[in-house]
Computed example of a mutant assay.
Amino acid sequence: MKCALVTGGSRGIGKAICLKLASENAYHILINYQSNKEAALQTLAEIEALGATAEILKFDVADHEAVNKVLHTWKENNPQAVVEVIVNNAGITRDGLFMWMQPEDWKSVIDITLNGFYNVTNFFIQEMLRSKYGRIINMVSVSGVKGTPGQTNYSAAKGALVAATKALAQEVAKRKITVNAVAPGFIRTDMTADLDEKELIKMIPANRFGEAEEVANLVAFLASDKAGYITGETININGGIYS
Results as ranks from 00 to 15, higher is better:
residue 4 A to G: 11
residue 9 G to N: 02
residue 9 G to V: 04
residue 13 I to S: 08
residue 16 A to R: 02
residue 23 S to F: 07
residue 29 I to A: 00
residue 29 I to W: 00
residue 30 L to G: 05
residue 31 I to D: 02
residue 31 I to G: 08
residue 34 Q to N: 14
residue 36 N to F: 01
residue 38 E to N: 11
residue 41 L to S: 14
residue 43 T to I: 14
residue 44 L to M: 12
residue 45 A to L: 14
residue 45 A to P: 12
residue 47 I to D: 05
residue 47 I to L: 09
residue 48 E to Y: 00
residue 56 I to Y: 03
residue 57 L to Q: 11
residue 64 H to P: 06
residue 64 H to M: 10
residue 65 E to Y: 09
residue 66 A to K: 07
residue 73 T to Q: 08
residue 83 V to C: 13
residue 85 V to H: 08
residue 94 R to W: 04
residue 98 F to C: 05
residue 101 M to L: 07
residue 104 E to V: 07
residue 106 W to K: 03
residue 111 D to Q: 05
residue 126 Q to Y: 03
residue 127 E to N: 15
residue 127 E to G: 15
residue 129 L to S: 10
residue 132 K to S: 14
residue 132 K to D: 12
residue 132 K to P: 11
residue 132 K to H: 15
residue 135 R to V: 10
residue 136 I to R: 02
residue 137 I to W: 03
residue 137 I to L: 05
residue 138 N to I: 07
residue 140 V to C: 04
residue 141 S to Y: 10
residue 142 V to P: 14
residue 142 V to Y: 09
residue 142 V to S: 13
residue 142 V to M: 15
residue 143 S to P: 07
residue 145 V to F: 05
residue 147 G to P: 13
residue 149 P to S: 09
residue 150 G to M: 06
residue 152 T to A: 01
residue 153 N to L: 03
residue 157 A to K: 00
residue 158 K to R: 14
residue 159 G to A: 04
residue 161 L to N: 13
residue 163 A to Q: 06
residue 163 A to R: 03
residue 165 T to P: 09
residue 166 K to M: 08
residue 167 A to C: 06
residue 168 L to Y: 03
residue 169 A to P: 13
residue 169 A to V: 13
residue 174 K to S: 13
residue 174 K to H: 04
residue 175 R to F: 04
residue 181 A to G: 12
residue 189 T to Y: 08
residue 193 A to V: 11
residue 194 D to T: 15
residue 198 K to E: 14
residue 203 M to N: 08
residue 206 A to W: 08
residue 211 E to I: 10
residue 216 A to S: 01
residue 216 A to N: 00
residue 217 N to H: 04
residue 217 N to V: 06
residue 219 V to T: 01
residue 220 A to D: 12
residue 220 A to S: 15
residue 223 A to P: 11
residue 227 A to S: 13
residue 231 T to Y: 00
residue 231 T to Q: 02
residue 232 G to K: 09
residue 233 E to C: 11
residue 236 N to A: 14
residue 237 I to P: 10
residue 242 Y to I: 11
residue 243 S to P: 00
